[in-house]
């Protein structure tokens, strides 16, 4: 369940942002979750309530945008979409795919309220 600690780390980051940019509450958080990021969307949603409770993001809505895993095949050289990290290349059926995208977990933006 590292999704909970990922979100707790995110809240710490948001508290720093709040001090720097002068807001007091986060009303919405949009996360981009790569399919190869090693985090489960359902586990993120499940952990979001406990992680944000009694913080500046208490009651915030969570929007998750999933993006596919992509990579370059070492055998045929094509850029392909993959479901899992160890999948063979769907184009040629055998090559190892070096992941180039969909492995990250990012905060895209936040909607905030309150001022200094």
């Amino acid at each position: 369940m590292h999704e909970l600690s990922l979100l707790e780390g995110m809240i710490q980051g948001l508290e720093e942002e709040a001090r720097e940019r002068g807001f007091s509450r986060v009303a919405q958080i949009r996360l981009e979750v790569g399919r190869l990021a090693g985090a489960e969307v359902e586990a993120l949603r499940f952990a979001f309530g406990p992680a944000t409770q009694d913080t500046l993001a208490d009651g915030a809505t969570l929007e998750i945008i999933e993006i596919p895993g992509v990579g370059i095949c070492r055998t045929c050289g094509r850029e392909v979409e993959i479901e899992a990290r160890f999948d063979p290349c769907p184009a040629c059926g055998e090559g190892f795919v070096d992941v180039t995208g969909g492995a990250s977990l990012r905060i895209l933006d936040i909607d905030v309220e309150g001022g200094p």
């Binding site: 780390g9 990012r106 905060i107």
Partner: peptide, 18 residues
């Protein structure tokens, strides 16, 4: 953002940034 008083801040940073 739908409500007045709200503003959107673009962060585009990894959850693991810290």
């Amino acid at each position: 953002p739908a409500r007045p008083g709200r503003r959107r801040i673009s962060l585009e940073q990894s959850l693991l940034a810290k």
